[in-house]
Amino acid sequence: MDQSFDCWLQNRVDLLKNKGLYRTLHTMNSSPGPEVNVNGENKIVFSSNNYLGLANDNRVKNAASQVAHEFGVGSSGSRLTTGNTKWHARLEERIAQFKQTEAALLFSNGYLANIGVLSSLPEEGDVILSDAFNHASIIDGCRLSKARTIVYKHVDLIDLEQKLMETQKADRRFIVTDGVFSMDGDIAPLDSIMQLAKKYSAYVIVDDAHGTGILGEFGRGTCEYLQVKPDVMIGTLSKAVGTEGGFVAGSKELIDFLINQSRTFIFQTSLPPSVCAASCQSLEVIVQGKQLRNALVTNIWAVTEGLTKIGYRMKGTNTPIIPLIIGDSYKAVKFSQMLHEKGIFAPAIRPPTVPKGESRIRITVTAEHTIEEINQLVDACELIGNELSVIR
Rank of each mutant, 00 (worst) to 15 (best):
R90A: 00
H69W: 09
K99F: 09
K86M: 08
T82D: 07
V73P: 05
E102L: 10
L91Q: 01
A104G: 03
R90T: 02
H88T: 08
A96T: 03
A89M: 13
R90V: 00
F107E: 05
G77V: 13
Q100R: 15
Q97M: 13
G72L: 00
K86Y: 08
N84H: 08
G72K: 05
H88M: 05
A68H: 01
F107R: 07
I95F: 12
F107H: 07
T85R: 06
H88N: 01
F98Y: 09
F107L: 12
S108A: 07
F98H: 06
F98A: 04
S78G: 15
Q66D: 04
S76K: 15
V73G: 02
V73K: 13
T85S: 08
Q66F: 09
S65A: 12
T81V: 09
E102W: 14
L106K: 02
S65K: 15
Q100P: 12
E92W: 02
V73C: 05
K86R: 14
R94P: 06
E93G: 00
S76W: 15
S65G: 08
K99M: 09
G74T: 10
A89D: 06
W87S: 00
G74N: 03
T101N: 07
R79D: 01
N84A: 01
G74R: 02
L91C: 04
